[in-house]
Amino acid sequence: MTFSLFIEQIINGLIIGSMYALVGSGIALIYGTMRVLNLAHGEFYMLGGYLVFFLVVTCGVPAYLAIPIALLAAFLLGALIQRLTIHYLLQREGWAFSTIAVTLGLSIFLQNSALLLFGENVQSVPYYVTGIVEFAGVRIPMQRLLILGVAILTIAVMTYVLKATRLGWAIRATSQDRDAAAVVGIPASRIYLITFGIAAALGAIAAAMMAPIYAITPWSGLPILFKGFVVVILGGLGSFPGAIVGGLLLGVVEAVGVQLTSTEWRDVIAFALMIAVIWVRPWGLFGSKS
């Protein structure tokens, strides 16, 4: 294998990793604010993919319009699901387990609804941009560069929202101390609703960008959910910046690991990395023990 091919694989790993980061940061946001582990998060990714497919391929809407519509739809769906299930469970005893169980049920329910609606055929969306960029012998398709660009933009916007807007302050205040936030007038249940919607939309962005490269099937949510879990464990569960770094790291580790073994073992590498991290640093690679 030549050196430039190796660099190409690393860059591809970073690009895929940026998508893992978006999915993982959604899981981290939900866990960070309401301490809920969302097993249905992969389905937001899967439904996001189908929404884009439906709008672009079936309805012929241009991609630059279809993606924002899909994001909005995912946001509303996420918020609706939160309001109908998690909202009630959080007020009861034993919510830590009951929320995991209900999101497991939701995951199967959404998966099989998609199977009924769209069939089991593998779907895909045409490339949003074509062409290949070549630099010093390293060849990267424009589509993949676009993915990286969108990921960087999304992360920048999210960081701005969390750090510099009133909504972001409210989200961070609620995640630090729900009761103290309530004392200063932040309605926790509305923050939870919005956070769930944002997390769902983050999953849908990843799905929209991956749709031209990876097939959309009713089952495409589960593998990405597992990747998201690995990401949040690497970065420390509940940490937004941790999830970003964890995602990129996972992408690169997978790319190198696949070079050393074969693609069949990609997921085993990811999970083994995760279990090793939990063994050594249960609070994540970048978090602090507290």
Binding site: L89, S98, A101, G105, L106, S107, F109, Q111, S113
Partner: peptide, 12 residues
């Protein structure tokens, strides 16, 4: 699909 619905209903 029904399994998923059963889990949701029972938990809720």
């Amino acid at each position: 699909l029904i399994y998923g619905a059963i889990i949701i209903t029972v938990v809720m």
